[in-house]
């Protein structure tokens, strides 16, 4: 029964990890950028929701209507100011730039909010539903529903819209996409905006379910990168499967063995998978043969 509970918890938490990882892998797929700042941006989203709920008494889920557009705009700005001017060695240089952005955001958040752990509060955070002997915390259920809704929206956007067609064209072949008249810069800027907006949405959930401070970003980004590498860089469905898989494994190990080892298994699985399959579970492009 404990294991069944652990699996359910893993799936529910995996839902919003999938959301944040989808943003990361989408950005990589379109413009070969490893957004190392995703973790810091998740924490930024969490702090924004926290500030809105503390000072203006706005419900965390409603605060998304403000935080997601705001962080998306930040993403568009980051693209035009920092990413677009990079001329050579884009993959490595953009990773370093995003690493610097992550540090900058962490420093600013730590300066503004101090390093005390905080948590976003709402009336339903501690409620839960019972089904037999299984426990479903309300916040995780809502968050899971939100994640599924946003991922469905993302799917529609990518596969059923005109913008999505431009996006997929830019993903497959940026040069050819430019030749047929797609403004790949605009597509890239918007994609980075979407990816970072998803981070902020994930951040709200992270902030309601965890006590956090600015330094939480490192833990987050390393988990997200593990998920994205496992799923194969640029593969959204891979990221979804990897997120659910990793969180379930972590929670089961935490129950069977001990919580402190749950997180270590997370990374150990990564190492084992990469030894056997360097391109990740669902990797489309062979990383070794670039």
């Amino acid at each position: 029964m404990l294991i069944a509970q652990a699996i359910i918890d893993g799936i529910l938490v995996g839902g919003f990890y999938a959301l944040m990882a989808a943003g990361l892998t989408l950005v990589f797929g379109v413009m070969d950028i490893v957004n190392f700042a995703q973790g810091a941006l998740v924490v930024l989203g969490a702090y924004l929701s926290y500030a809105l709920s503390v000072h203006l008494n706005i419900d965390p889920f409603l605060s998304l209507l403000i935080t997601v557009p705001a962080t998306s705009l930040l993403g568009v700005a980051i693209y035009w100011v920092l990413i677009k001017p990079i001329k050579r060695d884009r993959v490595v240089m953009s990773l370093l730039v995003m690493f610097a952005v992550a540090t900058l955001i962490e420093g600013i958040l730590d300066w503004v909010f101090k390093s005390n752990l905080v948590q976003v509060h709402a009336s339903y955070v501690n409620k839960s539903f019972q089904l037999g002997r299984l426990n479903f915390p309300a916040i995780y259920l809502y968050a899971f529903a939100l994640s599924v809704g946003l991922l469905a929206l993302l799917y529609t956007l990518i596969y059923r819209s005109r913008f999505g067609r431009s996006l997929r064209a830019s993903m497959q072949n940026p040069v050819a996409a430019r030749m047929v008249g797609i403004n790949t810069d605009r597509v890239s800027a918007i994609t980075l905006g979407i990816g970072i907006g998803l981070a902020a949405a994930g951040g709200m959930v992270f902030g309601t379910t965890n006590a956090f401070n600015a330094a939480s970003s490192y833990d987050l980004i390393s988990r997200l990168l593990v998920i994205v590498i496992l799923g194969g860089f640029g593969s959204i469905s891979g990221a979804l499967v990897a997120a659910l898989l990793m969180l379930v494994i972590q929670d089961v190990v935490a129950v069977v063995w001990s919580p402190v080892w749950g997180q270590t298994t997370f990374y150990l699985v990564l190492v084992v998978v990469l030894l056997l399959r360097p391109q990740g579970l669902f990797g489309r492009r062979a990383v070794r043969a670039q």
């Binding site: 490893v34 490595v92 990773l95 390393s222 030894l275 990383v287």
Partner: peptide, 28 residues
């Protein structure tokens, strides 16, 4: 030997991940 099986961004990301494995080991 393990890290150098991959290149470019995957290598960078893995170096960070391995560092965190050791941090967790030091905690645990």
């Amino acid at each position: 030997w393990m890290l150098l099986r991959v290149r470019k961004h995957t290598f960078i990301v893995l170096t960070i991940a391995v560092m965190f494995i050791f941090q967790l080991l030091a905690f645990n």
